[in-house]
């Protein structure tokens, strides 16, 4: 049985070759002697939403930046689609099929909403500089395709009516949707979301949750977020960081019931009080029981 089963088994692992699996293994990051991350590992499985939570200063953003090449780890392995990324550079991200949003919105202020999203679709363009400069037909077609693609992304996020506006003239939640459209328009295999719910009202957050669940059929998502109810609702897996160390990992239920997590949140200073309150709230008043 064993020897017979083996080929099929290895065949299957090869078939389901980690098309969009991100593996971070043993990541250490030191900033001038201060350890920001100590031996952190996580795997974002294809088609899943992986949450990254922890009190302020836990190292979430650092790990996030490691995943997109902005911070180079002191040691550790980053494996994307089965290949180790030794010198991951931010500008290669979209080509590798990875998109990220920024804390806040990070839209280009002097460009229209549509143009902002078009930059996100940039890697899909074909026409070279010369044909662009000489306004050759290829460049024209190229530009039109970008425009259409950007418009579709805006429509998906219900922001198409703002296409001609400048970001500064739009309400914050709309700007966040545009930023999301800009990340989605690149059609990534992995979407890195950095606090997408910050500054959103309750119902907008709900919409965001549904949106995240709806894109998972097309890509995996790594989500850094403070709003516990959103995290618990949309994530398949959660990794909890505290002081640069991984203190818990698992499904939302497992994480919620992990005493180390509760302690990390409650033990933290005033800053995390709101988080802690939300966590206990999400736990359904377990402390009373």
């Amino acid at each position: 049985m064993g020897p017979l089963a083996q080929p099929t088994g290895s065949q299957r692992t090869h078939d389901s070759a980690p098309t969009s699996r991100l593996e971070l293994t043993g990541i250490n990051v030191a900033f001038g002697g201060v350890l920001a991350l100590t031996d952190v590992s996580l795997v974002v499985e294809p088609g899943q939403v992986h949450g990254l939570i922890g009190p302020n200063g836990a190292g979430k953003t650092t790990l996030f930046n490691v995943a997109c090449g902005l911070v180079r780890p002191t040691s550790g392995r980053i494996v994307w689609r089965g290949e180790e990324m030794r010198r991951l550079r931010p500008s290669q991200l979209t080509k590798l099929g990875i998109s990220r949003t920024l804390q806040g919105v990070g839209l280009f202020p002097g460009m229209t909403v549509l143009e902002n999203v078009m930059v996100g679709a940039h890697r899909h363009g074909r026409a070279g500089f010369l044909s662009a400069l000489l306004a050759l037909p290829t460049s024209d077609k190229d530009e039109r395709l970008l425009r259409e693609r950007a418009m579709r992304a805006l429509t998906e996020l219900n922001a198409e009516k703002f296409a001609g506006r400048y970001p500064g003239s739009l309400p914050y939640p709309v700007q966040k949707r545009v930023a999301l459209a800009r990340a989605l328009v690149a059609e990534p295999d992995l979407l890195l979301l950095d606090e997408p719910a910050s500054g959103l009202a309750e119902d907008e957050m709900h919409e965001l949750g549904e949106l995240i669940r709806s894109v998972v059929s097309r890509m995996s998502v790594l989500l850094v977020e403070h709003h516990m109810d959103l995290v618990m609702r949309v994530c398949d897996q959660i990794t909890v960081l505290d002081s640069g160390k991984q203190i818990a990992a698992g499904t939302p239920e497992q994480v919620q019931n992990d005493p180390a997590v509760t302690e990390a949140y409650l033990g933290d200073a005033v800053d995390a009080e709101a988080d802690a309150a939300e966590l206990t709230h999400a736990e359904g008043g377990r402390t009373h029981g």
Binding site: S91, L102, F108, A132, A135
Partner: peptide, 19 residues
């Protein structure tokens, strides 16, 4: 043009454009 778009994006924020 796409190049022009990328140049303007780079002028507004190099880091974001790079990402």
């Amino acid at each position: 043009t796409r190049i022009g778009l990328a140049m303007r994006a780079s002028a507004f924020s190099q880091e974001v454009a790079r990402l």
